[in-house]
Amino acid sequence: MDIATLVGIVSAFALVIISIMMGGGLGLFVNIPSLMIVVGGTLGATMVNYPLADVLGVFKVVKNVFFTKVWSTQEVVDRFVDFANKSRREGILALESEVANLDDDFMVKGLQLTIDGMEPESIREILETEIEYLEERHKSGAEILTTMATFFPAMGMIGTLIGLVQMLATMDDPSTIGPSMAVALLTTFYGAVAANLVCLPMAGKLKKRSQEETLVKEMIISGIVSVANGENPRVIEQKLHSFVPPTARESRFD
């Protein structure tokens, strides 16, 4: 669970709700027609803009905003130094026992290809292709959320226009002015909240998650290719440290 994301969303909505409660009551800001226009209109427009499978898939991608398990860069460095030491002492086939203890499918795939005797550059090509399509999937999820963030305020504006038309059309009946204005203003409010407190922050977090995951996977590729080439553990550590900021580097050979 990503605490920053959870705290950010909860605190943002809590402050908005508290401000509403201090100014009157929460019931004043609940309007079903406005919600139908904003939420229904946005989902409909998004499904027109993207294939249904992509729209449904974004909900699976969104879980990465809250739940993610990415290796730290230092863990990757330490793990490949250990792999290199074992490989040089006992041979590349000795890494077979390490594969069973790993829970990272990408690293397992790379190590298994190495154990199977595939050429290092062929291993790099296969793993880099996998990263490329991983980035594409993450990019698609963030793009859909960004598009929804565009549609939400637009649907809010449409709802505002609907409310204003209803109000102007019934000016002779004062009892209808209030409900019509509520639809007019609350749709804009709902659209702004959904776009700026949900969609845009989540899209930004997904982009950040993608960058972090890509960095770790690129480190894994470099480590696997180095192990496959039989390089010295110290050299491998230095190679992998090039991915890490100088202040975060911890050497096993000092």
Results as ranks from 00 to 15, higher is better:
residue 234 R to N: 08
residue 9 I to S: 00
residue 55 V to K: 05
residue 102 L to V: 04
residue 38 V to F: 02
residue 172 D to A: 14
residue 87 S to M: 11
residue 219 M to F: 07
residue 225 V to I: 14
residue 204 G to K: 09
residue 96 E to Y: 12
residue 116 D to H: 11
residue 119 E to D: 14
residue 50 Y to W: 09
residue 46 T to R: 03
residue 67 F to T: 09
residue 237 E to C: 06
residue 244 V to H: 06
residue 52 L to D: 12
residue 187 T to D: 05
residue 249 R to V: 00
residue 22 M to D: 11
residue 193 V to S: 02
residue 45 A to P: 05
residue 235 V to H: 12
residue 248 A to G: 03
residue 69 K to G: 14
residue 110 G to E: 01
residue 85 N to M: 12
residue 150 T to D: 14
residue 69 K to T: 11
residue 202 M to W: 05
residue 247 T to F: 14
residue 223 G to I: 03
residue 38 V to K: 00
residue 98 E to M: 09
residue 16 V to F: 08
residue 171 M to T: 13
residue 184 A to D: 02
residue 241 H to Y: 08
residue 114 T to Y: 04
residue 67 F to S: 09
residue 157 M to C: 10
residue 188 T to S: 15
residue 2 D to M: 03
residue 162 I to R: 04
residue 74 Q to T: 15
residue 94 A to M: 07
residue 125 E to G: 10
residue 217 K to W: 01
residue 73 T to N: 13
residue 140 S to K: 14
residue 162 I to N: 02
residue 96 E to W: 10
residue 166 Q to E: 12
residue 107 M to W: 01
residue 234 R to M: 12
residue 249 R to Q: 11
residue 89 R to V: 11
residue 102 L to C: 02
residue 225 V to N: 01
residue 198 V to A: 05
residue 119 E to F: 09
residue 127 L to E: 04
residue 78 D to P: 00
residue 48 V to N: 13
residue 12 A to H: 02
residue 244 V to L: 04
residue 129 T to V: 10
residue 142 A to G: 10
residue 166 Q to R: 11
residue 220 I to H: 07
residue 158 I to G: 02
residue 3 I to N: 09
residue 38 V to G: 06
residue 182 A to M: 04
residue 191 G to I: 02
residue 83 F to R: 10
residue 217 K to H: 10
residue 101 N to D: 14
residue 13 F to W: 12
residue 74 Q to R: 14
residue 246 P to V: 13
residue 189 F to R: 09
